[in-house]
């Protein structure tokens, strides 16, 4: 599903963000990526989302060889995954419904399937009543659930979550990860970057620890110390 093979990334200013990182995440797995600030977690996600290219090594995601991915193929890769960000990244002038609808529109889905699927997914994340609200009218936790609904709506095989609990309170954070956990139980692969050790320990899933751009530890069903 996601395969890193001896991946290194050196930026144009000479910064080595990742150094010979290799790991594989199988279909249906739930993995946390942990590490201190500047360890290389964000670079790792940027590589998966094809925002950056590797300097060395190969990455395969959902059958796409990212080392040889052309600009035109990037939308197809991104449509095959759902992405959740720390800052939610909702379009402010679209309602909750429209934000989720947009993700389906880019896949050229029919209006009929959109009308069926969007309310269903909003119901799954507990926001059925908020469909007509705008993001600014929602709390941080609710906005993140909209982002999660948007990531889910196309039924992706992978969900990439970049510190999804970074901007919300602890109680809501637990709910968000719980939602991701439920989604994972339905067969979706989850890759979540976080620095909240409490959550990682609580859910006891695979932990990939990045330190100074290198793979420091890969613990199946593990936990990390504070």
């Amino acid at each position: 599903m996601i395969c890193f093979d001896s991946v290194s990334k050196v930026y144009s200013n000479g910064t080595k963000a990742l150094d010979n990182v290799s790991f594989t995440i199988e279909k249906g797995e739930f993995a946390f990526i942990v590490g201190a600030s500047g360890a290389g977690k964000s670079t790792l996600l940027k590589l998966i989302m094809a925002e950056e290219k590797t300097s060395e090594g190969t990455i395969t995601v959902n059958g796409f060889d990212l080392s040889h991915l052309s600009q035109k193929e990037i939308p197809a890769l991104r449509k095959s995954m759902g992405i959740v960000f720390q800052d939610f990244r909702l379009i402010e002038n679209m309602t909750v419904y429209e934000n989720v609808e947009f993700a389906m529109r880019v896949t050229n889905a029919s209006t009929r399937s959109i009308r069926r699927r969007v309310p269903y997914v909003l119901g799954l994340v507990g926001l059925g009543e908020k469909a007509r609200s705008y993001p600014r009218q929602l709390s941080g936790g609710q906005q993140q659930r909209v982002a999660l609904a948007r990531a889910l709506v196309n039924n992706p095989s992978i969900i990439i979550a970049d510190e999804p609990t970074g901007n919300i309170d602890p109680e809501m954070s637990h709910e968000i990860v719980e939602l991701l956990n439920e989604i994972n139980h339905c067969g979706t692969t989850i890759l979540m970057v976080t620095h909240e050790h409490r959550l990682v320990n609580e859910f006891g899933r695979r932990v990939i620890n990045i330190k100074d751009g290198k793979l420091a530890a890969d613990i199946p069903d593990g936990s990390v110390r504070k």
Partner: peptide
């Protein structure tokens, strides 16, 4: 530009 950026991450093509 932020709106455009979000659309790109959702997988929208340039023409879309």
């Amino acid at each position: 530009r932020r709106e455009i950026n979000i659309m790109k991450y959702v997988g929208a093509t340039n023409s879309f």
